[in-house]
Amino acid sequence: MNLAKTLRHLVEALMAMCMTGMVLAVFGNVLLRYFLGTGWVVSEELSRLLFVWLVCLSATLAFGEGKHLGFDLLTARMSGTKATVLRWLSRGLIALALWYLVRGSWEQVLVGMDSRSPVMNYPLALGAAGTLVMGVCMAVLLLLQSWQDLRGDGPGEQAAEPGRAQP
C-alpha cells in the first residue's frame, strides 16, 4: 500500500503547512500591533480558514488511524458474533452520519459559491469544502476498512485500519 503511505505523507505536509500559516497569521498580527501600532486585516479570516482545513485534514487522518475518542467498555468485553454485529452496527451508524454530513456540506458548497468573505473576499464555499472533503475521505476510509474486514485481513478492525503503521 505505497499509495496509502504517499497520501498520508501528503496530508501530513498539508497539516503542517496549515499550522505554520495559522501561527504566522496570528503572530504577525501581534507583532504589527505592538511595533507598528496597526493591525493586519487579513489575520483573523486567514487563520480561521486555515484552521478549518487543518481540522478537516487531521480529523480525517485520525479517523484512518482509529484515534477518535470512543467508549469501549461494552465492545471490549464482546467477542465472536456479538463483536462482529456491534462492529457492523457501529460502521452503519457512522456511515449514516457521514452521508448527511456529505450531503449537507455539498449543499453548503453550492450556496457558498456565490457568497464572499468580508475581508479577503474568498468564496465561502472554501470553508464548506473542508467538511465535504473530510466527509468523503472518511467515507472512503470506512469502505476500505469494511472491505478489508470482509476479506478477513486480520482480526477485524485493528489490522484493517489503514495508516496504522505509524512510525
Binding site: H68, L73, R87, L93, A97
Partner: peptide, 13 residues
C-alpha cells in the same frame, strides 16, 4: 456510544 460509535459521530447522530 455504547455500540462503539466514536463520540463525535454519536453527537452528530
Amino acid at each position: 456510544m455504547t455500540v462503539g460509535v466514536p463520540i463525535a459521530f454519536a453527537l452528530m447522530l
